[in-house]
Nucleic acid binder design. Structure first.
Lengths: 225, 225
DNA sequence: TCGCATTTTCGTACTTTGTAAGTTAAGCTC
DNA sequence: GAGCTTAACTTACAAAGTACGAAAATGCGA
């Protein structure tokens, strides 16, 4: 009967765990941005006091490293079977999706330099596909640098856009168009009116276009070097 | 005799100004990272009390927006004379240089969404060169997205590297090689030993290779669409 | 069931940050 | 000199990370 008291009030609280701390951290960052991810907000979301978190993580930096690796874990690992270019297409799309779901991760990629296991596994598998397709060691390195630069850079630009998806541009860009209308930026004006503000426009569509160009050119590197 | 007292002690202090605040902010970020740029450290560097800064800037966010634009102002504006591809080469190199000097700016590009005048001017001129070279409005937009994604993405990867320049890798990568030596990451191991750790290796060299591939393919877009 | 050790959670407190609100101290104009 | 403007400062507070150690919960052998 002694343990009765707590069973009455506490709804059988799920115990904390490193996993729970980290997944909750990801949700907060997804919903409100990394800026909103503080030890205090995290603790509150887990219905716990701030200092309890330090039993599972050494400090906030460790949380950041860990959630970046969790994002990598969401990315499709390319397969050594299947065409190399299809695998790269699938991988690139998967990276873009993951970074779209977790845009805060883009900013962390360049500040955190402790790659986790999912990160390493991903890079290793990707290089494996390129090598298997006949790229030399050097060519594979060059190809990977190119593909990754494009993919990250595109995701970064997408994250910086104040709009998302088809047609959402117009509502936001009205004030910007006002600025362009001064005539100081004729080419931005032209692009805005004749392309970006057209119905159905979606910046995300440009991703596939650039990727195809890169993949096509890369195919000529196979067997060389 | 009233104003005497201060003439004795104060060594004719240079008055504060928005310009001085912002250039000092850039130096601090360059030297110690954006993390070290606080209103207090900035004030201290200017030999002033923190709150004095608020006479020249509304808040810290305004400083961040402004220094990003200052980085853009350092980037060569491509010229409408000259070959389009040479201009793009020059521009890309200039962007990479500027972001290399100010790596903190990369992280801000995706979080700050208030483009300054230098930023707008730069984008407008770049689009102008592409249009002048015969790219259609759409093709110019696609080309620009591709070039910029690559350039930003590459700069971002470069910034994330723990080493810089030729040959500096070895000292840092030794512990990493230990990790690879477990055999879990055979392709990373291969790339490390046969490419990255070779004498004279410089990740920065990969930039030109990818850029040439992109420019070559882009030339086929001229006149189409 | 009790006592005790281990595991888990928390309380308090200090430091650093951005900045709101109001204050002092020069100069400038009339 | 009165009053205004410009420029810098003082004080104060809320929010953040986390050091240190105590408290509570839990599990387990006797």
């Amino acid at each position: 009967m002694k343990s009765r008291e707590k069973e009455d009030k506490l709804p059988a609280r799920i115990p904390l765990s490193r996993e729970r701390v980290l997944t909750c951290a990801v949700s907060i960052a997804d919903r409100d941005g990394i800026g909103a991810l503080t030890m205090r907000s995290l603790a509150a979301a887990l219905e716990v006091k701030p200092m309890s978190l330090y039993y599972y993580v050494a400090n906030k930096g460790e949380i950041l490293d860990a959630i970046v690796d969790m994002v990598y874990a969401e990315i499709d690992v390319p397969s050594a079977d299947g065409d190399w270019d299809d695998e790269m297409r699938r991988r690139a799309a998967s990276v873009r999706d993951a970074l779209g779901r977790h845009p805060w991760a883009i900013g962390l990629l360049e500040s955190r330099t402790a790659p986790g296991p999912a990160t390493l596994r991903h890079h290793d598998a990707t290089l494996g596909v390129l090598r298997g397709a006949g790229f030399s060691v050097k060519a594979a390195a060059h190809a990977y640098a190119l593909l990754d630069s494009y993919t990250y850079g595109f995701a970064m630009q997408e994250a910086a856009l104040p709009f998302n998806g088809p047609d959402t541009a117009a509502s936001i860009t009205d004030p910007i168009v006002q600025l362009f209308a001064t005539g100081q930026y004729p080419h931005l004006m032209e692009i805005a009116t004749e392309h970006v503000l057209q119905p159905g426009y979606d910046f995300g569509d440009e991703f596939a276009i650039g990727l195809e160009l890169i993949l096509e050119s890369l195919s000529r590197w196979i067997g060389r070097d």
